[in-house]
Design a protein around this nucleic acid. Sequence first.
RNA 1: AGAGGAGUGGCAGAGUGGUCGAAUGCGGCGGUCUUGAAAACCGUUGUACCGCAAGGUACCGGGGGUUCGAAUCCCUCCUCCUCUGCCA
Length: 423
Amino acid sequence: MLLVNTIRDHFETVLEGLQKRNFPHAEATLHQVLELDKSRKETQTQRDNLQAEANAISKEIGMLMREGKKEEAEKIKSRTSEIKEQVKSLEETYNNYEEDLKQLLYSIPNVPHSSVPSGKSAEDNEIVLEYGEIPKLPEGSLPHWDLIKQYDIIDFDLGVKIAGAGFPVYKGRGARLQRALINFFLDEALKAGYYEVQPPILVNEESGYGTGQLPDKEGQMYEAAADSLYLIPTAEVPITNMYRDVILNEVDFPIKNVGHTPCFRREAGSWGAHVRGLNRLHQFDKVEIVHVSHPDQSYEALEEMSIYVQGLLKKLELPYRVLRLCGGDMGFTSALTYDMEVYSAAQERWLEVSSVSNFEAYQANRLKLRYRGEDKKIQLAHTLNGSALALPRIVAAILENNQTEEGIRMPKVLIPYLGFDLL
RNA sequence: AGAGGAGUGGCAGAGUGGUCGAAUGCGGCGGUCUUGAAAACCGUUGUACCGCAAGGUACCGGGGGUUCGAAUCCCUCCUCCUCUGCCA
């Protein structure tokens, strides 16, 4: 969430940013934040002063008791009961202000970076670059949902039987392709200096709030209600939350973690013609990179991540493009997001395979993720993350783009992992 | 899952109702001494909020309660350890 100080000190900038996102009632909401904060402060001052008085009296009673002056002690006791009641009521008022303020701040999205284009939907995203040649497929080429049946490598019907729609079973060489991709992505990340972690794939409520899935996207996560746990929609949640309530030292930067996890998404209400086959699933695998950065270096980190992800796509020989998301299409917590899309030749459309974002201090503020600078001052760090990469659409693109009359050609970099070069 | 024990500052570890944000040791930082270092000695060393400041308030696993006053007593939840049970 945004800092109240930021809203106060950079009111116009914040306001313009929120308008770029088409955030409704931005100005009124921001004023409300400042009002609530002001009331909160005033209440605290009153409460603290009364509390100080009560503390002083208590101390005095203690001294009188020790000196054996019981009667005098009893006399002042009565004075405290009045103060106590006032403190209690002020405490309630204070808590209400604080809670209201928190809820209001939760409802305000991050302020977009100045380079973020304004716009309402995916159509307003800015194409930063395109790379690679769009393949011309032979006659009779098939979309991946037909190819997986023909080669019998991914079985949706079997998944329906076991779990439901959107939970495919990867079989034989399909399963091996999954494993090869995961290993390839992890090995590449290690070469690029990432630190590998294997986090839990269920998280508690606090973690959900830490990275912003709660309360904003509650309905998108599967919930293990009996234990108040959520299945992760992305490894961003557990990996970033490793740094919740942490004060780093400046020398710890840059922090670069990578982890592979399955991801679970309910995708409530988002099914349609465009989401056949592997395009949208309830469970899929993803290798995620998460950076924790010094605020001065977070945009360099974002570029580094973007270039890293592009490197993976090049190695996989997939044509791709990079988008800078517009204000209306960006995630709630992000300040700047690049989407990487690969071209899926049989579907003749671009598929998002990675989303790389800088959250600046938005998550760090919720997480209480800070660092101690050289001047000993404690400040919020910046967090970033990106997919590197999400598997299903990569698989879809590899299958569709590489189909030949002899079979489906595997990218060269995967062959050592796969042990075969043709599907 | 059952029985018992325990959770205190970066770490270790005192503290069972008032003078405790908390002894002491280690570690960290600064200094004295030294050509330099070690040792020794001196000082310093949690976080958040309010306040121009002086200063104040809160925090001893989380939450709630008793009391004029809680690290200390009570309730509850969480976590860890030991034993038993179960099990990849």
